[in-house]
Amino acid sequence: MSEELSDAAAPAAIAAQEEAGAAPRAPAGFKRVYAVWFRHFRVYSNFFFANATPAIFEPLFLMLAVGLGVGNYIKQTFNGGLDYASFMAPGILAMTSLYTAAFEASYGTFIRYMYQKTYHGMLATPLTRRDIFLGELLWCGTKGMLFSSLVGLVLFLFGKVHSPAAVLIPAVGFVTSVAFAGLSFFVTSFVNSINHFQYYFTVVLTPLTFFSGLMFPVQELPANLAYIAYALPMFHVIETFRLVVSGPEHSSVPWAWACPFVLVGMAVTLGYIGVRRMEGKLKP
């Protein structure tokens, strides 16, 4: 193929532009955010299974090995009559939503920022910095919604779902992922090397997950330790999932009804802070 461009080809191509007439207008804010969301959806649908693997299978293996495997030897019941695997089910869903968002908004965001320069390309279009990270935040929520639903379906097949309110799993998954995407944006905004995320995952997220009522009832800890667990964001996520998966009669604490509100509050606050931080990182 010739590398030569002909002057003759140009007028036809450009003339077509002028027919379009009026000055182009920028799309409305929500359409711009949707466009970013759709970009992620488009990329993601190319690699569905590769992407889904860690966030879905790790929690499911935990369920199989610990919930059903170890649980088989545990004759005691939990939270008002639940078998061990049923007790663990909400935590498994919480973990799925958390890790889905955390991976996407840390490693994923950082790679797009540092190596692929995806955002720099987006900035040459009508998108603002806020559009870019709001779209990404909503995408993280969407991914959390999809994955928690899939895991929820598996738990249902295992017979570990006990309440019809479980149809709300996608909604709780969405809000949880938005909250942790916000937190992860916040962390990503300080990170200059991709290796630093290992600290975030091992020092912050892992203990957050395991000391919030995933594996054992934290309300039975000595009072001071229990209060610490109640202060962790993950406790509220797990209790919210417990409300919809097992029903309020199996809640860990009498005030569990407040947990969904705390969760929504966290999603809004962390989402806002995270997006603001990332806007600042993509320097003007």
């Binding site: 207008r25 359409k31 466009a35 970013v36 990329v43 190319n46 009508p126």
Partner: peptide, 30 residues
């Protein structure tokens, strides 16, 4: 919305092929 920009380093969406790049780009402009 009314500018065309060719930056010093080419930034494309490395996760998408040529056509998809241009389609998503269009979506950013509505």
């Amino acid at each position: 919305a009314r500018l065309g920009v060719v930056m010093q380093d080419e930034v494309f969406d490395e996760d998408l092929n040529v056509l998809r790049n241009l389609q998503i780009y269009g979506l950013f402009f509505g």
